[in-house]
């Protein structure tokens, strides 16, 4: 049965050396470990960001605090838009305290550069957003960013 022997008689294909495979995988692994940043908060509100074209990147991640506004994920809490700060629901009144805490957590030289990113669901009514903005104004957190998705031109 010469038919089956052809591959052997040719000496067989050279085996690929897989000894360096773990190294390659480790390299990829380290890349992802370094670039990864874990989600810090579990979203309690459902957020679908609106689209915009004239967007800027937020440069320093460590100088950004997030305020989430949207419908609660847990349906039993109703469909009224709620504010989420860190890991808990909050009322508008708690925002000055939140701003103060976020400032405290940063080094003193950077406190004025703190940006507040508003991650707001696109179906939210402006009323609650305006209330949040007014509170931010009162507590002198003036630099804000309306988080959006990159839209098509």
């Amino acid at each position: 049965m010469a038919k089956f022997k052809t591959s052997k008689t040719k000496g067989g294909q050279a085996q690929i050396n897989t000894a360096s495979l773990p190294d390659i995988i480790f390299m990829l692994l380290f890349f992802f470990m370094v670039t990864t940043h874990m989600r810090e908060t579990t979203p309690l509100v459902h957020i679908k960001l609106p689209e915009a074209t004239q967007v800027q990147k937020l440069e320093k991640k460590s100088l950004v605090s997030y305020i989430y506004i949207g419908e609660p994920v847990n349906k039993s809490l109703g469909s009224k838009s709620r504010i989420q700060l860190n890991d808990a629901f909050a009322s508008v009144k708690q925002i000055p305290e939140f701003v103060a805490r976020e400032r405290q957590a940063r080094p003193e030289s950077d406190r004025n550069l703190l940006t507040f990113a508003l991650k707001v669901d696109q179906n939210t009514k402006m009323g609650i957003v305006t209330d949040v903005k007014q509170e931010l104004r009162k507590s002198n957190a003036l630099k804000i960013n309306y988080s959006t998705r990159k839209g098509k031109k």
Binding site: Q56, K57, L58, K61, R137, K143, I144, Y146, S147
Partner: peptide, 13 residues
């Protein structure tokens, strides 16, 4: 995801 959005400065109180 990189955070993108429209940055605005609110008027002082």
């Amino acid at each position: 995801d990189t955070d993108i959005g429209i940055t605005r400065i609110l008027p002082p109180p």
